[in-house]
Simulated scan of single mutants.
Amino acid sequence: MPQAVPEPDFSGIMKRISTAAGVHTQTDLANFFGIRRSSVSDARRRGKIPASWLITLLRVKNISPEWILTGMGPRFLLASPGRYDTEEEFAERQAEDEALSNVSSRALADELVRRIVLAQGKILFG
């Protein structure tokens, strides 16, 4: 079971998740993630987002986990030539994206949680 990510601004995170998934109800959100509606209710009650939701939004909708969790940074992680100075930079990013697509959801979730914990530590402890 992937680790859950605790977040203080839970209502904002849930709004961004719903927006990213293009849904308006808990039932629709559960259907999007392929889970029971009670799992969405449980996440709301605990105030924690399962890391697997972030992975699904990243893989299916190309949504940045950072944007979901903080509301900051770009919403989408889609690589496009306009974001890079050269075609070589774009090609490197495309290769990195291809490599990521071969990594398991569990490994991605673990890495996301690790990076979030490190980032929060830097924010809290300077």
Rank of each mutant, 00 (worst) to 15 (best):
L112D: 01
F90C: 02
V23Y: 00
D85P: 08
P50H: 05
R75S: 10
N62H: 14
F10R: 10
T27S: 06
A43R: 05
Q120F: 00
D42H: 06
E7L: 09
R106K: 12
I13F: 10
D110I: 05
V40R: 00
G82Q: 13
M1V: 12
H24P: 00
Q3Y: 00
T27Y: 01
I55N: 08
L57V: 05
L57G: 04
R45A: 09
I49K: 01
I55F: 10
D97I: 15
L100V: 04
A119G: 05
A109D: 09
H24I: 00
D42Y: 06
R37S: 01
T25A: 05
E111G: 00
T25M: 03
D42L: 09
I13Q: 10
D85E: 14
L118R: 12
R75Y: 09
Q94R: 14
L58S: 12
Q3V: 08
S52G: 01
P50W: 03
N102Q: 15
I17E: 02
I13K: 11
T56Q: 09
T25Q: 01
P2A: 14
S101I: 07
R83I: 08
E87W: 08
L69R: 08
V5A: 05
G73A: 08
L57T: 04
A95T: 11
G22P: 03
T56F: 03
